Amino acid sequence: MPLMFRLWFLIFEIAITEYAALGWSFDNTAKVFNGQEVSSYTSSIPSVSLITCGSTCFSRKRNGMCNICGYDKVSKTCFLSDDSEDEIIFTSNDSKVVLKPVETVCESSEYLVNGGDPVSDDQFSASSVFQDLPNHGASKARLHSLPSSTSIGAWAVGTKDANQYIQVQLNGLSQVVGVAVQGRPLKANGCCDQRVTSYKVLYSWNCQQFLTVNDTNGMEMIFAGNTDQDTVVTSMLPKQVLALCVRINPVTWSSHIILRFDILGCRVFDGNKDQDTVETSILPSQVTALCARVNPVAYVDHISLRFDILGCPLN
């Protein structure tokens, strides 16, 4: 019997701020230390919650606007500070808090498209396909694909412009940390020198509303593509993102827009849409464990859950 998680609330991390408009809280982590306060601050934000302060602190640090943050539980004020950890003041007043932003990443990322739990062909889609030929279709774009009687071994666009994309719906909500790309595999006769030389990455938690991965300055990030057909070029995102669908949008190319690709990351499990319905998620393969942790990644209002672990004892 496969080991299974039974989860009773939504999955957490403190909150990727772009999702706030969609009614979710997503983020990376700001660790909270009670009985501490910053020695100085550059600005303050009144009348905010501790969670909002943590989310703000994380995004401001990413943009170089602070290092750590203080929070006063009584006045509900968030203090943005350039203090180092050595400058933190320890106090017996538990209403004083210091928040230290920490970006969490997948402990062991894997290929999410064609790895141990590969997606099906119908989970691929594209803006266009060369002459609508099936052997040039989006599902032919798996990393390390080779030419065959039914495939050129890659995806090829029908329209050569910077508005094209290839999309994959992952097998479940996942933390995405990177992208790996290849060009068109060479045939025995040397055809063809075709590859994407730069691209953007877009992602969505619902496969309808997409966000573009930005650099640390808030600008749309351009990733380096391939300089030959077969070398796998892997680019890590500046921060992990939570996604169900990922798009690769070619920006520049050699001869024709053609690529093979995979997505690096780790799977997370669906949580709850209400308080009482039991949501059961099955691991892609059973594991042997003495201890198990449930790590919330997204949540509504507050992190709260009831859970159980399903499996069978070994003794």
Rank of each mutant, 00 (worst) to 15 (best):
M1R: 10
M1L: 14
L3N: 10
F5V: 15
L7N: 07
N28E: 12
V32F: 02
G35T: 04
T42S: 15
S44W: 08
I45G: 08
I45N: 12
V48P: 12
L50S: 11
T56K: 13
K61P: 01
N63C: 02
M65Y: 07
C66P: 00
I68H: 00
K76F: 02
I89C: 04
S92E: 09
D94M: 12
S95L: 11
K96L: 05
V102Y: 04
V105L: 05
E110M: 11
V113C: 00
D117V: 10
P118D: 04
V119K: 05
S128W: 04
V129E: 09
P134W: 06
A138G: 04
K140F: 07
K140W: 07
A141G: 02
H144K: 12
S151P: 08
I152K: 12
G158H: 06
D161P: 06
Q167R: 05
Q167E: 12
V168Y: 05
V168E: 03
Q169H: 01
G178W: 02
V179P: 01
G183C: 08
L186M: 13
A188Y: 13
G190R: 07
Q194I: 06
V196S: 02
V196G: 05
K200V: 02
W205S: 09
Q208C: 04
Q208M: 06
Q209A: 10
L211R: 12
G225A: 05
N226S: 10
V233R: 03
T234M: 09
C245Y: 01
V251S: 10
S254K: 13
S255F: 07
S255W: 06
D262P: 01
G265I: 00
F269C: 06
D270R: 14
K273A: 15
V278M: 13
I282S: 14
P284H: 08
A289M: 10
H302D: 08
R306L: 14
I309D: 01
I309L: 13
P313Q: 07
